[in-house]
């Protein structure tokens, strides 16, 4: 008696299994299996922390003791340190956007022109800085921009009779260092975006401009730039977002401890308050404000460049 029941159980098991496997194999179910990793990662690594960040921003988070404190974290944000972080980050965003759009456009136009020899060599070389990590870039910049008169950059300034600069100790020169570091690392990548965009500019427009007797500058401003508009929008958007996320470019110069907070950024402030001071609720509030700022600035920027208008 007993053995037969067990085979029967086995039989139903196998039919169940094959049913299940046929279900999992079907064309309808397969795509859901394929996208499962994304759904899991979205829920666990995006949605949960997102909601948690907003909740935490209304809490005082101490080890083993969490209390709801309403808007207090946000009220605490009205302090000179946060203003300084916000100001530094904003200045950084403005300069990196200007530099990382203007220079790459011009360089890309030349790199696309037959006038220039060894184009591939130049393209590849300008891309190399993008391969360095920000820490290595920081090591390099710190010794090039050393304070003493024997550091490379001060040596060069000395050659023109300019006295050595205390690079890491002034707010203007400190900002200069951060902007330079970012520009150096990202210029090659942006050049490639614009080069890709230039491949889509139609030759006919240039021919028409030629017939109208336009010179090189007129062609650049009335044909090349308008045609590159979508790429300019894209590059400026990612540069703005990356600018607001900035942390490492400051960390490599001052280890999050700059004189007079000249290198303090918003993300640096999150790190300082949330991690170093272990005040997670306050850190989360800074993050929420940062998110709102990025959102508003992106919308304004897209409106300003006319990305919402239908051409």
């Amino acid at each position: 008696m007993e053995p037969s029941t067990s085979t029967q159980v086995n039989k139903t098991k196998t039919t169940q299994q094959s049913k299940l496997s046929r279900f999992l194999m079907s064309k309808k179910v397969a795509p859901y299996i394929f996208v499962t990793p994304f759904i899991v990662s979205f829920l666990l690594l995006f949605l949960y922390p997102m909601i948690q960040a907003i909740i935490m921003s209304f809490q005082q988070v101490l080890p083993g003791q969490v209390t709801f404190i309403g808007m207090q974290n946000y009220e605490r944000l009205l302090n000179p340190e946060f203003y300084r972080a916000l100001l530094n980050t904003s200045i950084y965003v403005v300069f990196t956007v200007l530099i990382l759009v203007a220079f790459p456009v011009v360089l890309a136009v030349f790199l696309n022109s037959k006038l220039l020899k060894f184009r591939n060599l130049f393209r590849a070389s300008l891309f190399v800085p993008a391969l360095t990590s920000v820490i290595v870039a920081g090591v390099i910049f710190r010794m090039m921009f050393g304070e003493s008169e024997t550091a490379v950059i001060n040596e060069m300034l000395g050659f023109f009779g300019i006295s050595p600069v205390d690079w890491r100790y002034g707010s203007v020169s400190g900002m200069f260092l951060m902007v330079m570091l970012a520009s150096w690392r990202w210029i090659g990548v942006n050049i490639l975006y614009f080069l890709a965009g230039l491949q889509n500019v139609s030759e006919e427009l240039y021919e028409a401009a030629d017939i109208d007797g336009a010179n090189a500058f007129q062609k650049f401003f009335s044909v090349t730039l308008p045609s590159l508009k979508p790429v300019i929008i894209f590059v400026s958007t990612i540069t703005i977002i990356n600018g607001f996320r900035m942390f490492e470019e400051s960390f490599v110069f001052w280890q999050n401890n700059s004189p007079g907070n000249i290198g303090l950024t918003v993300v640096g402030y999150i790190y300082q308050e949330g991690i170093s001071q272990n005040d997670m609720g306050f850190g989360a509030a800074i993050g929420v404000v940062l998110m709102i700022i990025i959102f508003v600035v992106s919308i304004l920027q897209l409106k300003f460049v006319g990305a919402f208008k239908e051409d």
Binding site: A53, R245, F247, I275, S298
Partner: peptide, 26 residues
């Protein structure tokens, strides 16, 4: 499918630094 694709694009726009503290806690 379309919702998932929109979510992919949406996550692309949100800086990781905002999610970092809750993730660190996790």
């Amino acid at each position: 499918r379309n919702i998932l694709f929109v979510l992919v694009l949406f996550i692309l726009m949100i800086p990781f630094e905002i999610l970092m503290l809750p993730l660190y806690q996790l």
